[in-house]
Design a protein around this nucleic acid. Structure first.
Length: 302
DNA sequence: GGCCAGGTGGCCA
DNA sequence: TGGCCACATGGC
């Protein structure tokens, strides 16, 4: 089996360690993260490649690709590098965000504590949508339980050096199920319907990442998504922020965000929507990053 | 045991 | 538009 290496220069204001810490904290079986590296299987068309990423001297990211299916070509390499760049948001220039955040009463601490963190993506649209829907209106811990069940019941597992790696279930697989099979995981009937319906839309290609990426205007993208049953403003903004890289996507009704602002501001009560709108006006253009940092800050508190 | 949880859709005025 | 309310179950 052939092994290929590719080296990326680490951009400014990027800490691989801080990003690995985040990945370790949110491990879900799809990848494995350690304090020095992260590995996962990445699917390119019909083939799977085992990819490991580590850093060299904090100046370079080394991407190691194992050609587990003997199908490696120039396009494979291009796609895998694009995947990694997207996953870690390497194209993002965070310096203007940091400049703004250091003067912001809520963001000052988060950006200091997690300096170098990027909005780690959920590159797969179906995964991002399912994860958002699972997380609606239930506590985060149970949402992780449901996601685990979802992956282990319907996903594909791959072995590497004795370790199991999961691939997120495809929309095609979910669309071929009976809704009751989703219900049995412990989610509500309504959520089962939402997820099943979205799986159908994606299988029939009415909904795809490529189509959404052709939309550059946030409001239009939100409208497009919220026209789908089960996707409200929160879910649309969550997915646009985590998967499609809309910098101004802002899940403003998010309860963790509210708690994070309450925590960061040492308030006795959660802020009102109008207060958040007012304070967040200075985050314009960086709402997604502000939200991501506040989540990280709040969820990692002692 | 009661309240809250990374909301949404549907109904009503 | 804006205000309820059902959904439904786990975590604390």
């Amino acid at each position: 089996m052939a092994i290929y290496k590719h080296i990326l220069t680490i951009p400014a204001n990027f800490s691989f360690l801080i990003n690995l810490n985040y990945l370790q904290a949110t491990e879900d079986g799809l990848y494995r993260a350690s304090p020095t590296s992260v590995s996962r299987f990445i699917q390119i068309e019909e083939d799977f490649y085992f990819v490991s990423i580590y850093s060299k001297n904090d100046t370079e990211l080394v991407i190691v690709i194992e050609d587990t299916s003997n199908s490696y070509n120039q396009n494979t390499e291009k796609e895998i590098i694009a995947y990694v760049r997207d996953w870690f948001d390497l194209e993002m220039d965070v310096s203007p965000f940091y400049k703004m955040a250091k003067a912001d009463r809520f963001l000052k601490k988060p950006v200091t504590q997690f300096y170098g963190l990027r909005n780690i993506a959920i590159p797969d649209l179906f995964e991002a949508l399912v994860w958002a829907i699972l997380g609606q209106q239930i506590n985060l811990q149970y949402a992780y339980t449901l996601k685990n069940r979802f992956i282990r019941n319907f996903g594909k597992s791959m072995k590497h050096n004795g370790e199991t790696y999961w691939l997120f279930p495809s929309a095609q697989v979910i669309a071929s199920l009976d809704i009751d099979e989703l219900l049995q995981l412990g989610m509500t009937r309504r959520k089962s319907e939402y997820i099943y319906h979205i799986a159908e839309l994606m299988t029939d290609n009415y909904l795809s990442k490529e189509k959404l990426l052709m939309i550059s205007n946030l409001d239009i993208a939100v409208k497009e998504l919220t026209s789908i049953r089960g996707i409200g403003s929160w879910t649309a903004n969550y997915v646009l922020m985590r998967c499609l890289r809309f910098r101004s996507a802002f899940p403003i009704s998010d309860t963790v965000l509210h708690n994070a602002i309450k925590f960061a501001g040492s308030f006795k009560q959660k802020p009102s929507l109008n207060e958040i709108k007012c304070w967040a006006s200075s985050w314009s253009g960086y709402e997604a990053y502000a939200t991501f940092y506040l989540w990280r800050f709040y969820l990692s508190r002692i």
